[in-house]
Design a protein around this nucleic acid. Structure first.
Lengths: 274, 274
DNA sequence: TGAATAGTGTCTGTGAGACAATATTAT
DNA sequence: ATAATATTGTCTCACAGACACTATTCA
């Protein structure tokens, strides 16, 4: 092995082909909250937790649905790539984004070795135009989970996508599971794993952070906010308890929401802890 | 653009050079707990929280310290690469490991574009030989952190490594910060960021999981366990409160630790929640 | 008027923080 | 006897779960 005298000399001589090189994609899980149709003049609109999927019009996985994503360029930070893709594919700027996990199963892409760093993004759907792009569609999410399996059903009103994931206990001290796709017809790549990881991350973070406000409009009623918590956590909450917990995260405004066949509701806005 | 009739046909024709390709490393942050020297026949050994570093004997960053790591091979899952490297570099098998974060600043490696997926591993040092390898050394960690900065000092008894990181509030709803290295003499790459992220992750997880037991020997006293919590959290805990919290995670044994100039202590072992 | 949601009051049990008190050992 | 740690008891306060109750609107 050649002896170098300095870092500069070493770098000048460096052979970039010395180690295996592979491609990296950034895939983005965009979550939001959608309103259902109003059943009755008195009742509130149901809220749905939803994810944005894109229909693939090219191989591989032609005609399957996948998360918005794309290849990371040679001089680009992966998070910047994710933001670029959000901008390019859906004209979305300035939204909440966090790195989720790097998926690297050597067989996850049939073309060649591609690893994927996934990001979770949250957005208030009201800030977007109704139609983002021809290929993209919001799917309402419902999840059934027990100790052994996660069953997810996605529905955009036209099409239903179901998949099932097996949970294998990987590590007992932190109760971490390895996920394995056992049923999946309509999603490309290992994207069922990404979706399941994201749902799990969000469910956790909603309990101990203010992350939910990234999906809320500027003004909202506490009932609406509670609905969002309920739909993400998949369970009903008690009103007084919820109000106590949320009390110091929100600020009362002078605005009021009327029009439902019931007592009007004060509109609140997010109050940052700082 | 050519029209393909099937996935097989498309794949046969696929040009792998179509997208940028780059190298990926797995870097592993190995944490453990070390014993200090006994000051006095009555007193307990102090515990230190420690990290394993390796001295680089090649360019780039020759003679600087870094985390154990290496390049991911073309057909290898990154976590498998991390485990392979643990085995190769330190003959460590079967330890706790979890993915931490993927660092991808385009300038993080002076050679060429290399992204790094970091892992955090925890181990009971007693399970290892005293000398792991010639280049490797355990450094005791001390951390000073406030709203704006993290100052970390690492000491292996011979050498001290100090670095300072600036925290820039990136996102207020989840209180997430962007880290920026502002002082660093002795560590290679962006490894100060990896260490800071790992410490932060561990501090969080120790509060709501049983992760700490991965650093404990099979039998331990509650005093020892409390010391480990204290050194990781960087604060004293009240005995009765600690015992209450920990009570259902541990199991009393018939073994007893004597020999200190004080009341002997019952040895406990980890009791998994399942 | 009544269905539906908004919003408040209060009881109870759990659990953390704080501090005091007792127990046991090697020198 | 004493220093040091081990272990337990108990008081108080904060807060979540549970449930009851009141308020207000519009068809």
């Amino acid at each position: 092995m050649k002896e170098y005298k300095s870092e500069e000399e070493f770098l000048k001589d460096y052979d970039v082909t010395k180690f295996d090189r592979l491609s990296v994609t950034a895939d983005i899980l965009i979550f939001s909250v959608s309103d259902g149709v109003q059943e009755n003049y008195r009742k509130l609109n149901k809220k749905f937790f939803s994810v944005l999927l894109v229909k693939r019009d090219n191989y591989p996985f032609k005609d399957k649905w996948c998360l918005p994503g794309g290849f990371v360029q040679i001089d680009e930070d992966i998070e910047d790539a994710a933001k670029r893709i959000l901008k390019e594919e859906a004209n979305i700027n300035d939204i909440y984004i966090e790195q989720l996990y790097t998926f690297s199963n050597p067989k996850r892409d049939p073309r060649t070795r591609v690893i994927s760093t996934s990001y979770m993004a949250l957005i208030d759907k009201n800030k977007l135009p109704d139609k983002i792009s021809d290929n993209a569609s919001w799917f309402n999410v419902s999840v059934l989970e027990d100790k052994k399996e996660i069953f997810v059903s996605l529905d955009n009103g036209v099409e239903t996508i179901n998949f099932k994931i097996k949970k294998i206990l990987k590590e007992k001290t932190t109760d971490r599971y390895k996920y394995e796709i056992i049923e999946n017809e309509k999603l490309a790549f290992d994207h069922p794993l990404v979706i399941a990881s994201g749902i799990s991350r969000l469910k956790n973070k909603i309990e101990y952070t203010d992350i939910v406000f990234n999906m809320m409009p500027k003004y909202f009623t506490l009932g609406e906010l509670q609905q969002v918590y309920e739909v993400i956590l998949g369970k009903k909450l008690l009103d007084p308890a919820f109000r106590r917990i949320i009390a110091n995260k929100v600020e009362k405004t002078t605005k009021i929401k009327t029009g439902g066949g019931h007592r009007p509701s004060v509109l609140f806005k997010y109050k940052s802890g700082n």
